[in-house]
Simulated assay, not measured.
Amino acid sequence: MTYDDIWFPLQNGLETFLGIPVIQAEGLGKQPPYPFIAIKFTLFGQGVGQVSEKLEGTNKVITQALESVISVTCYAERIEDAHNKTNQARNYFLGQGHYELSDHNITVVDVMPANNRDVFLTTDYERRAGFDVRLRTKLVESFEVGVIEQVTINERMEE
């Protein structure tokens, strides 16, 4: 599963649910008007549990659960807007998003409590609130393995 396989369902689902822009945090693009959501992957693709290996014909298939953690932060001019949109975003992951993301093979494992993430900017605060979400996906890697069709053994005795 690639970054985009996770990012696009997250972005599209949350943006549709909230009705405000959802962007990648710390990007180089222009910041949208307030309020907006920024998502940052703080952990991407850590293996969880046992690796499964099996042969399907001449293909070896390796499967493993991968865990990622995303940080979801709402940026707003007013603290109440940041808190309200943050709570709505949490509700997305706890409800509708849980089902929508599962259609893309993304499982919501845990939605952490929301907290204040305000930042002081020269003369005023940028109001922020946010939370983290643990997600799981499945890595499936398949490749062809060689098959030995014939073996010739030469025996030679040395004395």
Rank of each mutant, 00 (worst) to 15 (best):
Q11P: 03
Q11N: 10
K30C: 02
G27P: 02
I20N: 02
G47C: 04
F44C: 06
G13I: 06
P32H: 03
G47D: 10
A25D: 04
Y34P: 09
P21A: 08
V22C: 06
G19Y: 08
L14Q: 05
A38F: 04
G47Q: 09
G13H: 05
I39A: 05
I20R: 01
Q46Y: 10
E15S: 15
Q31V: 15
V22G: 01
E26C: 07
L43Q: 13
P32I: 05
Q46A: 12
P21Y: 07
I39R: 06
F44Q: 09
P33Y: 11
G13E: 06
F36V: 02
P32W: 04
A25C: 01
K40H: 09
I39V: 15
G47M: 13
G45Q: 02
I39M: 06
T42R: 06
Q31H: 10
G47P: 07
P35L: 07
K30N: 09
T16A: 15
Y34W: 12
K40A: 15
G47V: 11
G47K: 09
I37S: 00
F44V: 14
I37L: 10
Q46C: 11
I37H: 03
T16M: 10
A38L: 08
T16I: 11
F17Q: 06
L43V: 12
Q31F: 11
G45P: 02
F41T: 01
G45L: 08
F17E: 08
I37P: 05
I23V: 12
G13A: 09
A25V: 02
L10R: 02
P33N: 11
V22D: 03
A25E: 08
N12C: 12
G27I: 03
Y34L: 11
K40G: 11
F17K: 08
F41N: 02
N12Q: 15
T16Q: 14
P32S: 03
I20K: 02
L43T: 13
G19M: 10
Q46N: 14
A38C: 12
A38K: 01
G27H: 01
P35W: 01
Y34H: 12
V22Q: 03
F44A: 14
G29Y: 07
